[in-house]
Simulated scan of single mutants.
Amino acid sequence: MNMSISMVTCKPAMPSLKDVPRQLDISILIPRRRREKVVVILGATGTGKSRLSIDIASRFPAEIVNSDKMQVYEGLDVVTNKVTEEEKCGVPHHLLGNICPDADFTTEDFCCLASLAVDSISARGQHPIIVGGSNSYVEALVNDPSFHFRSRYECCFLWVDVAMPVLHSFVSERVDRMVEKGLIEEVGKVFDPDADYSRGVKRAIGVPELDLYFRTEKFLDESNRKRLLEDAIAEIKYNTCKLACRQLEKIHRLRNFKRWNVHRLDATQVFQRQGGAEADEAWRKLVIEPSTKIVAEFLYGATKYPPLPRALAAAVAG
């Protein structure tokens, strides 16, 4: 007895277009390409976005695309607070410190290069993680119809949030640490009395505020130089706090008015514990674990995920 079955008889009959009701959109009959998945991390400056992006990329096959409009530029690594090679933990980063410092890098430029980076990462079987404080860049990339991002990619939005009074205190202390790391000297090396502070990396907070100090320091005695420098540092702190408030307002707008499905992760307790083992444990419980479960569900439809290798966990925690 011949048990073979003709494959012709197994094919379902396709409807003829003349049989389709006129009010039906025939585009539903056209097979659509499955959308790839992208993780987007939002948050005000200083909340730990970069740290979380590396934590997630260390648990999943992922690469990071920077969306901070100052960190795209080459140079001024302390001023722009770029992650170091050691902090990257071997995770590939894109659009980080490779744009000419004096370039007029526009939102459209970002959308074009970020879109190419995301496409390249996805084509290699990796998951893109977009992270940075420039929410206008992210919004333009996700919503601009010219790039068809929404039709090609499904997004998971994570928001690292910290109560503003706590964050303001932290960013002020961070500015002090940046000064200790050489912020003043770094800006002094690129100081130009004819500088245009409306374009390029010189727009970064920390550069315009020191202009008067570098213009006049050689004409002042030690006491007045010290006072002028303290005033400049205080202005850097104030402008950084203002930036954090603007960034938070934009996130609320994206969530409440644009209706983005944003997952909020409250990291306030982490910053209240001011570093050390307790802060690291709070970061793990309040940020890493919930965000990793969200991403696992988003990427694979599962809440189970591989544990971070011990050596890598130590590097991330450190």
Rank of each mutant, 00 (worst) to 15 (best):
S172Y: 02
V79E: 05
C241R: 13
R215F: 05
L299I: 09
A163R: 11
Q274I: 01
I5K: 14
K189E: 14
H93G: 00
E278H: 14
D280Q: 10
M164E: 10
V166N: 04
G182E: 14
S50Y: 01
I294N: 00
T107N: 06
A315L: 13
L312G: 00
I130F: 08
F149V: 00
R34W: 08
N224Y: 11
K181N: 11
N224E: 13
D19I: 08
I121P: 08
H252M: 10
S120K: 12
E289F: 08
A277M: 05
F214Q: 09
E85G: 09
A282E: 07
K189M: 11
Q71E: 15
G43P: 04
R273I: 02
A13C: 08
T80V: 15
D77N: 15
L220A: 06
E139V: 07
C112R: 12
D119Q: 12
E281Q: 12
V295I: 13
G97K: 07
F170K: 10
A315M: 14
R255Q: 11
K202Q: 06
G90A: 06
T107D: 04
W159Q: 09
R284E: 06
K237R: 11
G276C: 06
K37D: 07
L220G: 03
R310A: 06
K237F: 08
E235L: 14
D109Y: 02
V65I: 10
I130K: 01
E281R: 14
D77A: 14
I41G: 02
F219H: 10
G90N: 04
E281G: 02
R32T: 13
A123P: 00
A204D: 04
A277I: 11
L52R: 05
M164Y: 05
A232V: 04
A234L: 10
S169P: 10
E185D: 09
E63Y: 09
R22P: 07
P61A: 11
W260K: 01
M7E: 09
L265M: 14
K82D: 06
N256H: 08
G182W: 15
L229S: 01
D211Y: 14
C111G: 01
A311M: 12
I236L: 03
K226H: 06
K242I: 13
A195F: 00
A302L: 12
R51Q: 06
R33I: 11
R264M: 15
K218H: 11
I294C: 05
D68P: 03
Q247S: 05
I251K: 00
G90H: 04
D144F: 01
G133H: 10
A311L: 13
N98S: 07
C89T: 04
A279S: 15
A267C: 07
T303F: 12
R152M: 11
G276E: 08
A296F: 13
L76Q: 07
S6W: 06
D102A: 10
V171I: 15
P290G: 08
R225E: 03
E87I: 00
I251D: 06
R253F: 13
L265D: 09
P306L: 03
V20W: 05
F191A: 02
M70L: 10
A313F: 06
P290K: 01
T292N: 03
S169E: 15
H127S: 03
D144P: 01
G46E: 02
R310E: 11
I236C: 04
F298I: 12
L116H: 03
I5Y: 10
R227W: 05
V91S: 02
A317F: 00
V270N: 03
D19R: 08
R215E: 07
D266F: 13
K237T: 06
A117F: 07
V262K: 00
E278A: 14
